[in-house]
Simulated assay, not measured.
Amino acid sequence: MTRPEWRKPRRRGPSRRVRLTLTLTVAASLCVALVRLCGGGADAPAAAEHKDPAPGHATVAPLPRSAPTKLSIPGIMIEAPVTELSVDAKGALQTPPMSAPKLVGWYGDGPSPGQPGMAVMVGHRDTHTGPAVFLNLNALRPGATVDVTRADRSTAVFTVDAVHTYPKKDFPDKKVYGSAGGPELRLLTCGGTFNKKTGYSANVVVFAHLTAVDRA
């Protein structure tokens, strides 16, 4: 089985040249799919293709750095704690522990949600114990909101621009990891068809940009 093809990017965020395909598969402590839940390799519900996020979004003023502590997506009833992820000695991004399927991971070497640039958050679709936090991520639609509570007690509110399912073999690095420079967010999980030997065939990606800030 393969690990996610993440290699250590620069501090400012994942390099556009690095293939950061999130291949959440059966083994190596990655996303384990249950045949019973995923239809034994039948196609998982595909996300509808929407327009690409346009460059130069009008956004609110960016926030200073502050680690995310909670992710909330009211439209698909997600409210989950967040843990910081780093890369291992081989440059592979760690994933949230399989023992905590409702946990979301944030790539801590990139921008925090609300900072200028593109913040990356990942979660499992399912594990050997059942459905996980991003099971229904592909059900999001443009206009939905994603709220990220931060350690400084502010909440960065993002609006979804697009939701796409990309085959792993055709994963568009530049489109997914490119940023217009303003505060943006990417949510990633596995999707497509599940195979016992190769795992999921695709990745679900949510594109969003900062539209409001709530302060405690």
Rank of each mutant, 00 (worst) to 15 (best):
residue 53 P to G: 05
residue 30 L to V: 00
residue 29 S to Y: 09
residue 20 L to I: 06
residue 28 A to S: 14
residue 15 S to W: 00
residue 49 E to Q: 15
residue 36 R to D: 12
residue 47 A to K: 05
residue 41 G to T: 00
residue 41 G to A: 03
residue 39 G to F: 01
residue 49 E to G: 13
residue 44 A to V: 01
residue 19 R to K: 10
residue 22 L to V: 02
residue 38 C to A: 15
residue 37 L to E: 14
residue 35 V to I: 06
residue 52 D to E: 15
residue 47 A to I: 02
residue 16 R to A: 03
residue 38 C to P: 00
residue 50 H to W: 13
residue 27 A to P: 00
residue 37 L to I: 09
residue 49 E to N: 11
residue 52 D to T: 11
residue 28 A to M: 11
residue 40 G to I: 04
residue 37 L to W: 13
residue 19 R to V: 10
residue 46 A to V: 07
residue 49 E to M: 10
residue 15 S to Q: 05
residue 27 A to R: 11
residue 17 R to G: 10
residue 36 R to T: 12
residue 24 L to P: 00
residue 25 T to I: 00
residue 53 P to R: 12
residue 51 K to W: 03
residue 30 L to G: 05
residue 48 A to N: 05
residue 23 T to E: 12
residue 15 S to K: 05
residue 18 V to A: 11
residue 28 A to Q: 13
residue 17 R to E: 10
residue 54 A to E: 15
residue 23 T to C: 13
residue 29 S to P: 08
residue 18 V to P: 00
residue 37 L to K: 09
residue 30 L to H: 05
residue 45 P to N: 06
residue 37 L to T: 04
residue 25 T to W: 00
residue 15 S to R: 10
residue 37 L to C: 05
residue 52 D to V: 10
residue 42 A to Y: 04
residue 32 V to S: 15
residue 31 C to W: 04
residue 20 L to V: 03
residue 54 A to K: 15
residue 35 V to C: 12
residue 19 R to E: 08
residue 20 L to A: 05
residue 48 A to P: 06
residue 36 R to M: 02
residue 18 V to M: 08
residue 21 T to K: 12
residue 19 R to S: 08
residue 48 A to Y: 10
residue 27 A to M: 11
residue 27 A to H: 13
residue 32 V to T: 13
residue 34 L to W: 06
residue 43 D to N: 08
residue 21 T to F: 09
residue 37 L to S: 08
residue 38 C to W: 02
residue 27 A to E: 13
residue 23 T to N: 14
residue 28 A to H: 15
residue 40 G to R: 13
residue 19 R to Q: 10
residue 23 T to H: 13
residue 48 A to S: 12
residue 22 L to T: 02
residue 40 G to H: 11
residue 18 V to Y: 06
residue 51 K to G: 07
residue 36 R to A: 14
residue 22 L to I: 06
residue 20 L to Q: 05
residue 24 L to M: 01
residue 29 S to E: 11
residue 34 L to K: 04
residue 37 L to G: 00
residue 42 A to T: 11
residue 33 A to R: 03
residue 16 R to C: 01
residue 26 V to L: 04
residue 32 V to N: 14
residue 32 V to Y: 15
residue 32 V to H: 15
residue 31 C to L: 05
residue 50 H to M: 08
residue 20 L to F: 08
residue 42 A to C: 04
residue 27 A to G: 03
residue 18 V to I: 14
residue 23 T to M: 11
residue 27 A to V: 09
